[in-house]
Design a protein around this nucleic acid. Sequence first.
DNA 1: GCAAGTAGTAAATATTATATTACTACTTTT
DNA 2: AAAAGTAGTAATATAATATTTACTACTTGC
Lengths: 143, 143
Amino acid sequence: MREEIVKEYISLIPNVFGSFSELNKDSMELSHMQNHVIEYMYMQNRALNLKDISIGLNVAKQQLTNIIKDLETGGYLIKVPDAKDKRAILVSLSPKGKEVQDNKWIKIYQKFSEGLDKLSMEEQLDLRYALHKVNILLEKMGP
Amino acid sequence: MREEIVKEYISLIPNVFGSFSELNKDSMELSHMQNHVIEYMYMQNRALNLKDISIGLNVAKQQLTNIIKDLETGGYLIKVPDAKDKRAILVSLSPKGKEVQDNKWIKIYQKFSEGLDKLSMEEQLDLRYALHKVNILLEKMGP
DNA sequence: GCAAGTAGTAAATATTATATTACTACTTTT
DNA sequence: AAAAGTAGTAATATAATATTTACTACTTGC
């Protein structure tokens, strides 16, 4: 029994990963690490200081100095001194930085939407319900 | 309606990605590209020549020369001359190379299995069925 | 208030990744 | 059998990423 649930889950991973691996295909402007930072900031959706990002991405803070300086120069990030800690600097995504991530999700949306057209109305309902169920249960399993 | 299916799918991605991003956490021995090659070989599950890998991973064959030489030196890959094409060399995973990938999946298995313990028997059955349904329908949607 | 600790920066260095060109040995086409 | 094409290797240059040490300005704990 357990074996079979795991097997289904393992099958799911490549299916979903197909979408995800295409996320960074096009964004040629930015390097791997720069993308990584923007992704992380987008997910956190709040102003972070370098230390936060360093820990969150498991990257040395020394590396971030230049990466973030370049992203700021490019207009993707905004740096503001932290009022509460005068050593620190709060970094947040600019509208341009957010747009980079938004566009990635729009692509996933479009691709998924095309796939949906191949399903009947009944299958679409089934998929919706099954996805909902999976999400609820995976959520419950998480830490 | 469509909006809501997409929304569920978008929610699914981070759930699953949690597992996937941990795949390469520990394998410190190997570089990013070396891991990439081993992953690809593991997925293909057959002997490949450099050209195959080059196309499959969208990497210049010139890059592969050294990557694969190092992997062979490390005992992860085995190189055998192709009998049918004397220019080519067939590369396959050694037991050690397969083990690297196996261990990654074992970790996912274990983590998922721990999560399962938090669910009731009924929920586990629901999850199995819902996952199965999702997999079948996503498969149908793919190219 | 002072010692110890922290956030960020800077610069030097090492390692990886990517790209370009050219070459050998073999295969395919005609 | 000659011409054109292909698989792999080699050497090189540049960019991206990672690591180390050291410094300034500030905060925290005592």
